[in-house]
Amino acid sequence: MPDVFAAPRGHQLRLLVKQHPGATVGVAFIVLLLLASLFAPLPYDPTATNGSNALKAPGAEHWFGTDGAGGDVFSRVISAARIDLSLALAGTLLSLVVGLPLGLVASGKGRASDWLVRGLDAFQAFPLLILALALVSLSGNRLYMVVVAIALINVPRYIRLMRSEILSLRESRFIEAAIAMGATPGRITFRHLLPNVWGIVLVQTSLTIANAIVVIASLSFLGVGVSAPTPSWGGMIRDGAGNMSSGEWWIAGFAGIAVLLCVLAFNQLADAIGDRTARTYR
């Protein structure tokens, strides 16, 4: 298999596409979905209802059919992407901002590190999804609390990831050489440790976004988080679940497919980043 990084810069993109077609398709899907949700003119108002058009099957007039209130499912699926993906990205960013510095603290020596690790063990003893559900419910379904809930679920993962990676790297010979040459702890951290963990952090970030999409859909399915009439994939799945038995599969089906494709796309991206990182440090 050709090495991407040995190729001329102009050929690297084509090699990446060839080696990781799943990630390429996934990224293209996410980009198109975001662009469509932000800029594309939707065929119908995603919050509009029309009782005379209720439960129409997919066709030329309504590509994904209509729901029980007569809303256009295609318009709602595309509109829901804007809010669901925005919340997922914001929650992941907050997880990074909080989790990475705490991971550095946890990887050190001293009482602060010990207390943080013990506190993390105690915190993870709670069912975090239930905690997130209670937090969002008590806030009155404030969207910023959905972001906080995503961070609560994922910050411990970043802390443990950073701690394990940095503790492992500190046993490496190049770190020992840097210490022998008189490098300061700050230089060792920012010049030698952090650049060597960014690859695995990016992999975890892609997986975190995928997990956040599932969490947001789960909260919406349970009736918290994104409130009606604002479209959300989880809410659409909840609203259409009762119609599955009578044959109106498209209400929940297309929203479920959107969640599935987004999660699959970010998982494929994580695989590609992991492969690239392994080749870089091979």
Rank of each mutant, 00 (worst) to 15 (best):
A90S: 07
L42K: 06
G71E: 01
R76N: 00
L33T: 08
W63D: 03
F29A: 08
S37R: 02
S52G: 07
L100D: 08
R111H: 15
F29N: 13
L102F: 11
D114W: 14
L96E: 08
L94Y: 09
D84Q: 13
S79F: 00
V31F: 11
T47P: 02
L96W: 10
G99R: 11
W115R: 13
V77H: 00
P43A: 10
A48T: 06
V97Q: 06
G110D: 04
A57Q: 11
I30V: 14
L100R: 08
T92R: 10
G65P: 02
L100V: 15
L100F: 10
P41R: 05
A40V: 14
V73P: 07
V77K: 04
A112L: 14
F74Y: 10
A54V: 07
L89Y: 06
L87F: 05
L100E: 02
F39M: 14
A60F: 14
V98N: 03
R76E: 04
L35H: 05
A40T: 08
L104Q: 02
W63R: 12
L32R: 11
V98S: 10
G108P: 06
A69N: 05
F29D: 00
G51V: 07
T92G: 13
V97M: 11
G110P: 00
L32Q: 07
L33Q: 06
G51F: 05
R82A: 07
G91K: 07
D67M: 00
K56I: 00
I83K: 04
A48L: 06
S95A: 09
A48N: 15
L100N: 03
T92P: 10
G110R: 09
S95Y: 05
P58H: 04
L85Y: 12
F74S: 08
A28E: 01
G68R: 09
T66M: 02
P43T: 13
P101C: 15
A112E: 13
A28F: 14
A48C: 01
S79K: 05
I83M: 13
V77P: 08
W115T: 04
G99M: 03
T92S: 13
T92Y: 03
L102N: 08
S86E: 12
P46A: 05
L85V: 14
L94M: 12
L32Y: 06
L34I: 15
W63T: 02
A69V: 00
